[in-house]
Structure formats: structure tokens, C-alpha cells
């Protein structure tokens, strides 16, 4: 799989029923029909790298920091199929194409993300933050997962 550059015609892919900023942004089944979907802005400056995973969704490298060689990644998908291959591609794109040394992201245990797939491509749980986001009427915990490039 190869990520491709964003085009204006991909705008529909940037909104969906997933938690904002989530590393593994998968659709939440019980998202209230009248609640606004999560959206990310289309890429428009060097501050973020947003690519399209053909047929799957978007991958956004945000908080790009070229001095510290890192980015926070968030993915917005419409299904889980091909997630394992996508995650390998996300890491490879971050390290080999963007030449970053570290990528990290938010994981929310309550929504039961497939963290085994993250571990398979080298991500580790690095920190647990209580009450870090809001869902279904209450604050819930979030974790930071990250992977560091081995040179």
C-alpha cells in the first residue's frame, strides 16, 4: 500500500463518527445521529501532512515538529479491513518519506481499539492520562502510544 496526496475531491473522507485526534479513528457504532461528526481541516500549509489511504480513509501527521523530528498521527477510517497493512504504511511513510524519528498518537481504551495491531508495528503505550477527553456525558481516560525509529 502507498499513501497518496490529498485532493479537493477527497473532502468527504475528512469527517466521520470517530473520536477527535484518535490514532485509530474507527467509526463508533452508537454515535448519536444528531451529534456533529468529527472533522479535520483539509491540508493547507506545512504544519500538517494529510494523506489518503486509497479506499480506507485519511492519515494525518499533525503537530509536525521538524526540530524534534516527530508528529502526532490520527487516522480516520470507515472500516477496519486492511488496518494492519495501513499501520505498517503509516509508520513507513512517517519514518522513510517524512524522515521523522518518532510518531505518536492518542488511544482511548474505552472504545476498545485493536491495540494489538499497533503493537505489531512497534507502537508502545507510553503514558496514561486520566479524564483526557469527553465521551457519552463524562470525561474518559486516554493513552499516548508511540513508536521511535531505530537507526
Amino acid at each position: 500500500m502507498r499513501l497518496r496526496g490529498y485532493r479537493g475531491s477527497d473532502a468527504d473522507l475528512l469527517a466521520g463518527p470517530w473520536l477527535p485526534g484518535e490514532l485509530l479513528g474507527l467509526p463508533l457504532a452508537d454515535w448519536p445521529p444528531l451529534a456533529a461528526p468529527t472533522t479535520v481541516p483539509p491540508p493547507a500549509d506545512p504544519g500538517q501532512e494529510l494523506c489518503i489511504a486509497p479506499g480506507l480513509g485519511f492519515v494525518r501527521y499533525t503537530e509536525l515538529d521538524w526540530v524534534h523530528r516527530r508528529a502526532r498521527v490520527e487516522i480516520g477510517l470507515h472500516g477496519v479491513d486492511g488496518l494492519d497493512v495501513l499501520l505498517k504504511t503509516v509508520v513507513a511513510h512517517g519514518f522513510l518519506t517524512l524522515n521523522l524519528s518518532r510518531i505518536h498518537g492518542w488511544v482511548t481504551p474505552l472504545v476498545d481499539p485493536p491495540i494489538g495491531l499497533l503493537a505489531d508495528v512497534g507502537f508502545q503505550r507510553e503514558a496514561v492520562l486520566p479524564e483526557a477527553t469527553w465521551l457519552d456525558g463524562r470525561p474518559i481516560d486516554r493513552e499516548i502510544w508511540g513508536v521511535v525509529r531505530n537507526d
Partner: peptide
């Protein structure tokens, strides 16, 4: 302290971890 972000910063020619406190 609730975690460590490894090699999260570059400073003075070296990587630096970042400690997370809550």
C-alpha cells in the same frame, strides 16, 4: 508521573525523553 515519551525532544545535539505528570 504517568508516563515517559521516549526521544520526544532534540536539544543540545541529543535526544531527550519527556516525563508526563498528572
Amino acid at each position: 508521573q504517568v508516563g515517559v515519551l521516549p526521544r520526544h525532544r532534540w536539544q543540545n545535539y541529543d535526544w531527550q525523553d519527556v516525563l508526563v505528570y498528572v
